[in-house]
């Protein structure tokens, strides 16, 4: 077991490194942050409630990006099941442990790097951010707890929605949740029932946590109850983390049990037929 965890850490590092050495994934690392920064550049002088809009949105986007690690886990799980990566893990002693540790490491690593890629240029382009030692501390715990809350949910989504088209479909509700999570405009501007719904998602709380870490204290005026609500942030993210960590092993085990050579072969046939037909 200990060997497998070590192998998994190494696996995560290899996969993380690989994501910077091949074209499509490299594009993924830089294209979205580049668009984000371009967007922030045009918003840098807009104002909302006395504060610059760019300053409000930058930390929110960092929170949202980190929460989207869940989508990455979900999609990679589906792809890895399709191409037989999971079956190989299953055929190896404690291979599933190594696989999951590796996935968490590589996705968390990517989330971190993507955060730096947006944050560093963002600090120069967007004025009105406040960077303090306490802020970095808040950023660290919100990010860590946020990842523990969202990555297992991603594993559950990846086990339940098994096909690539289904993975595409879950993007739609995800966009809906982003829209009501106070990322691009304050959640207090929404009708009360949407405001409630938005506050059930980890996306909202990760965005809020990031704003509390990177914005000056007076910006709290646009938040619910004029408070950063750190206790509630830890509470909600903690609940998601516990739920995810309890549910993910069960769902993953059920999914892995159904994997076999003929299941992978059948998917390969289907994929080949699709690409020909």
């Amino acid at each position: 077991m200990r060997t497998a965890v070590r192998a998994g850490l190494r696996r995560g590092w290899i996969e993380f490194r690989q994501s910077f050495t091949n074209g499509p994934e490299l594009l993924g690392h830089f294209l979205w942050p580049a668009l984000t920064i371009a967007g922030l550049f045009f918003l840098r002088d807009r104002e909302f409630g006395g504060f610059t809009l760019g300053a409000l949105i930058l930390p929110s986007i960092l929170g949202m990006n980190a929460a989207m690690g869940m989508v990455a886990v979900s999609q990679q799980l589906t792809a890895d099941r399709g191409d037989g990566t999971l079956l190989r893990a299953k055929a190896t002693p404690y291979g599933m442990v190594g696989y999951l540790v590796g996935k968490v490491v590589s996705v968390a690593g990517s989330v971190l790097v993507d955060l730096v890629i947006v944050l560093v240029p963002g600090l120069f382009i967007v004025g009105g951010l406040s960077v303090t030692a306490g802020g970095w501390l808040t950023l660290s715990w919100v990010l860590t707890l946020g990842l523990v809350a969202t990555l297992p949910i991603g594993a559950v989504l990846g086990s339940v929605f098994t096909s690539a088209p289904a993975q595409g479909l879950i993007q739609l509700p995800m966009l809906g949740f982003i829209a009501i999570s106070g990322i691009f405009y304050p959640i207090t501007a929404l009708p009360a029932w949407l405001e409630w719904l938005g506050q059930l998602t980890p996306i909202y709380w990760m965005g809020l946590g990031m704003r509390s870490a990177l914005l000056p204290p007076e910006t709290v005026a646009v938040e619910v109850g004029q408070s950063w609500r750190h206790l509630e942030t830890a509470g909600v993210l903690g609940l998601w983390a516990v739920a995810g960590l309890l549910l993910a092993p069960v769902v993953l085990r059920r999914m892995a049990r159904r994997e076999s050579g003929s299941a992978v072969a059948a998917r390969r046939e289907r994929a080949l037929r699709r690409s020909v037909g």
Binding site: I14, E15, Q18, T21, N22, D80, D83, G84, T85, L87, R88, A91, G261, V264, A265, R268
Partner: peptide, 10 residues
């Protein structure tokens, strides 16, 4: 196992 395209970048 009959591999297909797993671990292509390794």
């Amino acid at each position: 196992l009959q591999s297909w395209r797993d671990h292509g970048n390794w």
